[in-house]
């Protein structure tokens, strides 16, 4: 569903944001994307959302490929990939239901379907009683639920969340996370960028992708957590990222947790020939809802 093949992104002013990243997220999978601030998490999400294009390599999201997507197709892709922001980005002058209605309207949903859909979405995120509340009248957790409901307005198959619990207290964060989990259990792929180590630790069965200095340094679904090179279609011989376990943030409890030396970045060791071409989904990945 989401496939990165040797993806690098270099910004003209600030330099490389991500370098030679390869991974694959399957339908219905849940993955954490971890790393320090500035590690490249947001750039990865932007690449998936096609807000920016890779300088090298290829990003595939469903049937859309970064090297041949047309500008006019991007809105269609974005309707399939919901996006949840850390800072909510709700329109303050609109009520909860109007914020969702706004997304429905601008994406061309027939007006006759509005009420039913808004009620369903608010019910889904547990806010049916707050439909007429303005964002300023809602708590942080409730606001984030409205944002999630808005992201679901176009019936996406993938949900990207950029630090969705970053502005919430632990209890609200837990509630929002549970919401993501329930959506995932209904078949939606979820990629959640976070630096909430506690949240990651509490969910050891979830897949974890860790980026550091723009490189993917850890993938819990890979063989032993090591990041393996990904075979590039029509270019199978292309080398990939140096193999290096993450220094921190890895889930501490699962049996598959790799040994993680605290050494700094070092050159690539010989690549494990047994490593799979693409990483596998987490064991808890539900059955895909449908093909994109």
């Amino acid at each position: 569903m989401i496939r990165f093949i040797n993806v690098s992104k270099v910004y003209p002013r600030t330099g490389a944001a991500v370098s030679d990243i390869s991974f694959h997220i399957k339908k219905g999978e849940f993955a954490f994307l971890t790393g320090h601030s500035g590690a490249g998490k947001s750039t990865l999400l932007k690449l998936i959302h096609f807000q920016t294009l890779p300088t090298e390599g290829q990003v595939q999201v469903s049937r859309y490929h970064s090297d041949r997507i047309k500008r006019r197709d991007i809105p269609d892709l974005r309707r399939r990939v919901g996006f949840v922001f850390q800072d909510f980005k709700l329109l303050e002058r609109l009520t909860a239901s109007e914020n969702i209605g706004f997304a429905l309207e601008v994406t061309g949903t027939p007006r006759r379907d509005f009420d039913a859909k808004i009620q369903r979405l608010l019910g889904q995120v547990g806010l049916a009683a707050k439909s007429r509340s303005l964002p300023s009248e809602l708590s942080g957790g409730e606001r984030q639920r409205v944002v999630i409901a808005r992201a679901l307005a176009t019936d996406p198959l993938i949900l990207l969340a950029d630090e969705p619990t970053g502005n919430l207290d632990p209890r609200a964060a837990e509630g929002v996370f549970e919401l993501f989990r329930s959506l995932n259990q209904m078949g939606m792929a979820v990629l959640m960028a976070t630096h909430d180590t506690e949240l990651v630790r509490k969910n050891p069965t979830m897949r974890v992708l860790e980026v550091e200095h723009g490189r993917l340094v850890y993938d819990s679904a890979a063989n032993g957590g090591k990041v393996a090179p990904v075979a590039v279609p029509n270019d199978p011989g292309k080398p990939s990222t140096p193999v290096r376990p993450a220094e921190n943030l890895a889930p501490s409890t699962p049996s598959s947790t790799p040994v993680r030396p605290a050494s700094p970045v070092r050159p690539a060791s010989p690549v494990d020939p047994s490593a799979p071409g693409t990483t596998e989904p987490a064991s808890n990945a539900p059955t895909p809802r449908e093909a994109l």
């Binding site: 809105p75 269609d76 309707r79 996006f83 329109l91 997304a103 601008v106 994406t107």
Partner: peptide, 17 residues
């Protein structure tokens, strides 16, 4: 800009915006 960013994020077409 806020509205536009939301429209772009949820998938409104360019001509619509």
């Amino acid at each position: 800009s806020e509205e536009i960013e939301i429209m772009q994020t949820v998938g409104a077409t360019e001509s619509y915006i």
